[in-house]
């Protein structure tokens, strides 16, 4: 479903250019649960952002169902993120002035057309799915950190995506709450959703079916498929 080929990404910094990815190749099949691990600054979040079309690589290609993301127009990439891909961040980033229920419906608020009853019903289902149907009318400020993250997951599910990209979703949560979040992601994967998770927690990484390790901008290990030999060196 998703194929990254020789991805190179460099960020300009005060101390000069800082290479984040130095030729990473990775294929993610539909329905996989891939955990990307690595030390802080290894480039794992950059890889996730490139796979999810939020960032464009300096070199290399990301193919989604055979289509090069870089060749798509900005509008097509926006549409892709609105329909096929979903994001969950370390910080939940809920809109503080909308209720949990309204936050779940945020992806549909870019149109003049009012959100229809079917979408509203599904938003409630998504909240139920993460165990928060009874707190649908609460503002984010009235929810705990774990609950807020679960609302963010419900928001990621409401568009019925094919792939969910989660960047350290448990990073700001305590152990038991983090475990709840991982259980939800695991269950969603079992129901067929492709999940790409970035985490530095070995315990959570092991819950994924496939473990990929990034070190110093390169693919260091991949227990699903052998790490391909780097075809380019930066």
């Amino acid at each position: 479903m998703l194929v990254a080929k020789d991805i190179v990404k460099t960020f300009a910094g005060e101390a000069g250019n800082a290479p984040a990815l130095r030729g990473v190749s990775l294929a993610v099949a539909a329905g996989e649960f891939v955990a990307v691990t690595g030390r802080s600054g290894s480039g794992k979040s950059t890889l996730l952002n490139i796979l999810s079309s939020l960032l464009t690589p300096d070199a290399g290609q990301v193919l989604y169902d055979g289509r090069d993301l870089a060749a798509m127009s900005a509008r097509e990439r926006d549409k892709l993120r609105a329909t096929d891909f979903s994001m969950v961040f370390q910080m939940h980033h809920l809109l503080p002035y909308l209720t949990a229920f309204e936050n779940v419906l945020t992806p549909f608020l870019s149109s003049w057309r009012p959100v229809d009853a079917a979408r509203k019903a599904f938003a409630l289902e998504c909240l139920e799915r993460v165990g928060l149907a009874d707190k649908a009318e609460r503002l984010p400020g009235k929810l705990s950190g774990g609950e807020q993250q679960r609302v963010a997951i419900a928001r990621a599910l409401v568009t019925r995506p094919r792939a969910l990209f989660a960047d350290e979703p448990t990073g700001s949560l305590d152990g038991s709450t983090g475990r709840q979040i991982m259980d939800i992601l695991s269950d969603l994967n079992k129901e067929g959703l492709t999940v790409v998770l970035v985490t530095h927690e070995p315990l959570y990484a092991r819950m994924a079916g496939r473990l990929v390790e990034i070190a110093d901008g390169r693919l260091a290990a991949d227990n699903g498929t052998p790490a391909p030999a780097p075809s380019r060196t930066v």
Binding site: D78, L80, R81, A82, M87, H93, S110
Partner: peptide, 9 residues
């Protein structure tokens, strides 16, 4: 965040 959720420019 809105852009990440698919909101266009």
């Amino acid at each position: 965040l809105l852009r990440a959720l698919g909101f266009s420019k």
